[in-house]
Design a protein around this nucleic acid. Structure first.
Lengths: 343, 343
DNA sequence: TTGTAGGCGTTATCAT
DNA sequence: ATGATAACGCCTACAA
């Protein structure tokens, strides 16, 4: 048998009792200290401290509308691609007293839906999602709940959803242009699985478009889809190089795949970039420590996270959509890209 | 003026009304379907679907004891060190219908405390923490709340807290032993900031102990503390190599730092490992794609995450501490470590 | 098997 | 400036 207040989690009532005031006063003390006299405020704060009281979040969320929490559902935590942007996102939120809760969807659409619902049920005031691609029911649900939502890592001016990101297709086009300009005609592509991944799909489209514009047949492209991992990049590279005609350039959907590809290409005895050029996407730290350093598309991850946070906070406060923001990516031409070897 | 049920978030009452039953029946349907007749169950489920009803988490947490949520507070999301283990942790939880919420503490003790409280306030049934080092008040709070807690990435058989991890000191001793055995006498160390980071401190201790056992003066060690980033590894390496006597081996607190160090060492014109040996810690994917591949300590990240999840779930269910689990690390000797050049 | 009703901890609306 | 009290949405005895 336990007495109620014995070593249990204190409630606002315990604090009120100890401070000799009403629960309402305690509540005011916590939420708007200016509405209570310094003397009583002192008493309450002392009681709070002594008891180690923390407001029950559930109860608070039940009656208030705000939870000061936003959720982010990212495809994976397994590599650094989303880490930098998310870090900046969190920093900006924290400055405004908002807590970030992160859930990973492991690149599985139905799992992502589940995670979104989880965050919603927990009263997230806003949501950060990666890319546009998901079922319409989810969007309907978000709208019905009036949950502020920002899409990042993608940009679509025609979508009703606010996005803070960049045009993946355009970015990859620029890179593919640089590759083709160096004489490469047969290009291997290592992409993420494009089903239910609009970013990956857009990037591949960008490459295809460049080839089309150059009057090159799509058959000059050999595309392998795989999951994001260094090992996958190695396997894919090995396979690409076993084909005839052998590609002289391998364009990868991100830097992680590219790092694996470079490694494998060299292991097989080819030189980079003299024999084979390799490119990445994202410009994470890894890109610079590759040997040779990776030619890639620089994505302003921190800026993206920061501005996404500001947009989301604004939407939460004002209760209406904020304008989308297109961020510019930049080509980073490093040593992994060279001219096509004359065969 | 809005009608209450108009396009708002549905409550259990809405579902009950639509299904023509009481709220209690709906609740039972959701929590223990076997306690309600198939016919009514059908009606309720149809209403749930039609309305797109999701139970309000706050309300549920308020009255029930379980939230089926566990939280993890990790030092950073910025690199892949914790990613793999966390991924496995999440997978194991998800299999049991438990949701993982992640918060990052950015290697700041007070921020970590804040994040822990946030998770607690949100009713997390259990917590995964990294390392032992934090204030006693937090532990008191955890105990008072009866929140199941598991410490990972560290192992201390003497702590009352359950840990699922490995002995950082011992692991690094093994590696340092291998370095010294190859004749290295002057060793540079690039460590994470050891203040409030027991793992980093233990690793450095491991190196010191080996030197002591070999009868080498501690002054043969030159230690630089820095944050975890590839760039930091580069700067630190540059500084280490500018000292006299120049170290012949650089031991790093993790693979990320080591990758940066290798890059810089080579950029400065030294060969690895002929002139300078470099070692890492963790054995993340990066270790294998380094040039040359990194000698490092292999940490069974996925196993650690998996077993931490099982231990935590067990503690939540049984309401008492589970035994700690020590995982074995393994030396991975790759090309970045070579014999000390005879000077 | 199903319905009724009380209470979980908090905030907000009224009084005082 | 402070206190009483009615919600908030859900679960769970207890009743029927």
């Amino acid at each position: 048998m336990e007495t109620k207040s014995d070593s249990a989690v204190p409630t606002i009532a315990d604090v009120a009792r100890r401070a000799g005031v009403s629960t309402a006063t305690v509540s005011r003390c916590l939420n708007d200290p200016s509405k209570v006299q310094p003397a009583t405020r002192e008493k309450v704060q002392e009681a709070v401290r002594a008891l180690g009281y923390t407001p029950n979040f559930g109860a608070r969320a039940l009656v208030a509308k705000r939870t000061n929490t936003v959720g982010a559902v990212i495809p994976t935590m397994d590599n650094a691609i989303f880490a930098r942007g998310l870090q900046a996102f969190q920093e900006a939120l924290h400055e405004q007293g908002v807590t970030l809760l992160v859930a990973s969807a492991q690149y599985q659409p139905d799992f992502e839906e589940e995670q979104i619902r989880t965050l919603l049920a927990r009263g997230a005031d806003g949501l950060l999602l990666i890319g546009y691609e998901r079922g319409p029911e989810i969007y309907a649900e978000l709208q019905r709940r009036g949950v502020a939502t920002v899409v990042a890592w993608a940009f679509d001016p025609n979508s009703p959803l606010t996005s803070v990101g960049f045009d993946n297709r355009k970015a990859m086009k620029a890179l593919a242009g640089a590759v083709v300009a160096r004489g490469h005609r047969h290009i291997g592509v290592i992409s993420a699985v494009t089903a239910s991944n609009d970013r990956a799909r857009d990037r591949v489209s960008g490459i295809k478009e460049v080839l089309a514009e150059e009057g090159l047949p799509v058959s000059n492209l050999r595309i392998i889809e795989t999951n994001y991992a260094i090992e996958s990049g190695r396997y894919a590279a090995a396979e690409l190089l076993s084909h005839t005609p052998r590609p002289t350039a391998i364009m990868c959907g991100n830097d992680v795949l590219a790092a694996g590809a470079i490694r494998e290409v060299r292991r097989m005895g080819y030189r980079v970039p003299e024999d084979i050029s390799v490119t990445g996407f994202d410009d994470i730290e890894l890109a610079e420590i590759c040997e040779p350093p990776l030619t890639t598309v620089h994505v302003p991850h921190r800026q993206m996270g920061h501005r996404a946070a500001l947009a989301l906070l604004q939407m939460i406060r004002e209760g209406q959509a904020a304008p989308s923001i297109e961020l510019k990516t930049e080509l980073r031409v490093r040593d992994s890209l060279g001219p096509c070897p004359t065969s």
